[in-house]
Design a protein around this nucleic acid. Structure first.
Lengths: 226, 226
DNA sequence: ATGTTGTATTCATGCGGCTTTAATGTCGCC
DNA sequence: GGCGACATTAAAGCCGCATGAATACAACAT
């Protein structure tokens, strides 16, 4: 799950970002309107959290452009309390939800999760691959009924694999979804994390779920090897 | 499918190349304009990805020359964000699509596939030859309903044959489409790979799909031998 | 501040499988 | 039969991947 936060107040941005990362989302931040628009238009985010009062380019403008560009990621608007009059206007412009500052993080989180659930029609709350089970709400992972502890990165990687079970995912795609970087130099970080996952998920089980496709990437599935 | 990437930034070039190779394309890279032009003018590529900002010879110049030389491979332009004004100009000069840096690989891949589909006369997503079936999106191959595992090279070769089912393809043409530039000189590598394919595709089946045409090359078809 | 713990990332090495070469056997054609 | 073209197999080389350990980093407690 990749989120973009567009917010110029450093404090608010950090607060939101940290909280969301703790919930294991991959979060990018833009501190002004122009770069916010750049990032939003380039990458496919699952959700955008957008402050309306921005230097460079206003939040309204970004929202308008996004919808014009047929980007359909849900947008959660942040704004000052005394501006609620503009609320309707922004809903019409394509905002999906609305939060007035100051707000509690818990409140934000509820809405973020609601939007993600609604948005991704196909998004299942529980992912299953063979006897592996991932609960996306509680972030609990079990194999054959036994609970598995994963770190943030491990969880994100496994979730991405499981959400695309059966498909082979290239390292490039994995890096883009699970890490927020694109052009970093050559690194084997994906390999290393796959090893970590195998250690926790596959080791000790006869049926290996995680499969390497040489020259291509990795995939997870419960198909039995020939 | 053979692609050429002309891009001087090492990191971007590596990133793109790696990602595309994982998608089983044969990818050549040129790190400056001059060698890019050389390669593009000599070999037949199915698609060219072209950075505009290049040392040696500018991307615009390469594009202009290509069209003048009646090379009709689709061209996907890469450029910096603040140069979008030149967009129209390049479309008129014969560019087929456009991507501003930085971009997400997923975005690039979508466009590459779109261009290849458009160009290749209604490129089908599923290729069928007799009871052989190739799904180009998932890269799954089946014969008589049974799944077949192929390596990257084997897959590329079979795809090239199947996409031209019924036609006889010479060894030279096969090498040009399936292998990248690192290849030259006399070699029987095509024969060897045809053997690999026969082992996986034809052995154990009464109807042989892969046919040798003496003195010419190979072809795949479900026509019964006379 | 300092140490401690857990996590993220980089690095170096060894192994195995894909790729490629090469050598030999077989077939078709004149 | 003899030549050339293709088939087949074995083996070498190389690249990609797996792996374990070392290092950097952040969070937290003392």
């Amino acid at each position: 799950m990749r989120l973009l936060v567009i917010e110029d107040e450093q404090k608010v941005a950090d607060f939101v970002t940290r909280g969301l990362r703790a919930e294991r989302f991959a979060v990018d931040v833009a501190y002004d309107g122009a770069s916010g628009w750049d990032m939003a238009s380039v990458s496919a985010y699952d959700l955008i959290i957008l402050d309306l009062m921005l230097p460079g380019m206003s939040g309204s403008e970004i929202l308008r452009r996004l919808r014009q560009a047929k980007k359909d990621a849900p947008v959660l608007i942040l704004t000052a309390r005394d501006r609620t009059a503009e609320k309707v206007e922004h809903f019409e412009a394509g905002a999906d939800d609305y939060l007035t500052k100051p707000f509690a993080f818990a409140e934000l989180l509820v809405r973020v999760k609601a939007l993600l659930r609604r948005g991704g029609a196909a998004r299942a709350d529980i992912l299953r691959v063979g006897d592996l089970e991932m609960d996306r709400r509680t972030q609990q992972v079990k194999r054959a009924g036994k609970k598995i502890d994963l770190t943030s990165k491990e969880y994100s990687l496994l979730e991405y694999l499981a959400a695309n079970a059966g498909r082979v995912l290239s390292r490039t795609m994995i890096i883009e979804h699970v890490w927020d970087q694109s052009f970093e130099g050559l690194t084997n970080i994906v390999d290393v994390y796959v090893r970590h996952l195998r250690g926790k998920v596959d080791d000790g089980h006869a049926a290996k779920l995680i499969r390497t496709v040489r020259g291509v990437g990795y995939s997870i599935s419960d198909e039995v090897e020939a």
